[in-house]
């Protein structure tokens, strides 16, 4: 019964995200669709379904949702959609959903079909939930900042090259710049907590492999880069293109850290 409910919730969530993705892509591609305004609403509809799926699926598997990288990514993508559904109204950056919806769909599918749930008892620690929770929420916010930065660069490129065709499909660049900055500001303290707790956790389990060290270095680098972007914006007026490029690089490094976890999960073992 619980499994059936999980399957229904999974299918409903996937349909909502998939439909939103199709509408977003069609809208950005310049197709005149009367139903296009439904795209962000479909993402919002997907959020409670996704949350319910996470709860029910964790009951089916008898694991905590934040244990296991695929499952954790699914939680992160749900958080991304949740923040997007709220923030889009304030920042008027609906088009960011064109990135958010497909990645939410991909992580949702990955949580069910890619790799086993990582539940190695040796990796358990009291600090782990704090590490995972803050990291996931931080990643959710950086994902939105990244999407806003990509949209900013696209819009800025069109304006600089005076290629105005289709330009109306993206939000104004000041809205994208502002949204990107706010998401970074909100995500940075969470990333800081995630890195601190991650460092403590790594010491607890005595992880000292080469991969572990590389992962730590990348984490510190992404923290420094994003911190630098915020600092330069505040002190030297770094806005727009420079801030967008910095955000994308910082997000890229954070994603590399996640990639290490994914590889470890697929290959198996903390020393992978």
């Amino acid at each position: 019964m619980t499994l059936q409910l999980a399957n229904v919730l999974f299918a409903a969530t996937a349909v909502a995200y998939a439909a939103a993705s199709v509408l977003f892509v069609a809208e950005l591609g310049g197709r005149l669709l009367a139903v296009a305004p439904w795209a962000p609403r479909l993402v919002a509809v997907g959020v409670p379904l996704h949350a319910a799926h996470i709860v029910v699926w964790s009951m089916v598997l008898h694991v905590c949702p934040v244990e296991g990288i695929h499952f954790a990514l699914s939680v992160a993508s749900m958080l991304v959609c949740f923040v997007y559904a709220i923030a889009r109204l304030r920042f008027r950056v609906d088009a960011v959903g064109a990135f958010v919806a497909p990645q939410a769909l991909a992580f949702l599918l990955a949580s069910r079909f890619v790799g086993p749930v990582d539940d190695e008892p040796r990796l358990r620690s009291t600090i782990l939930p704090f590490h995972v929770a803050s990291s996931l929420l931080g990643i959710a916010l950086f994902t939105l900042a990244f999407a806003a930065a990509v949209a900013y660069l696209l819009q800025e490129h069109r304006l600089k090259h005076k290629n105005l065709e289709g330009i109306l499909r993206l939000p104004a660049i000041d809205a994208l710049d502002r949204a990107e900055h706010r998401f970074l500001v909100a995500g940075f303290p969470l990333l800081t907590i995630g890195i601190l707790t991650g460092t403590i956790w790594a010491r607890e389990i005595e992880a000292g492999s080469l991969a572990g060290i590389a992962r730590a270095v990348l984490s510190y680098a992404s923290w420094a880069l994003i911190g630098g972007v915020l600092l330069l914006r505040a002190s030297a007026g770094w806005r727009g293109k420079r801030a967008a490029v910095g955000t994308i690089l910082g997000f890229g490094l954070a994603m590399l850290v996640l990639a290490f976890y994914l590889v470890r999960s697929l290959v198996g073992g903390v020393h992978a």
Binding site: R92, Q155, L159, I167, L168, A172
Partner: peptide, 25 residues
């Protein structure tokens, strides 16, 4: 509703306004 007959800007001033709106919300 069914066609894009009213889409796009067709005067210098409306293009200028649209440009401004692409930069400033």
């Amino acid at each position: 509703t069914e066609t894009a007959i009213g889409a796009g800007s067709v005067s210098i001033s409306s293009v200028a306004v649209e440009l401004a709106r692409r930069i400033f919300t």
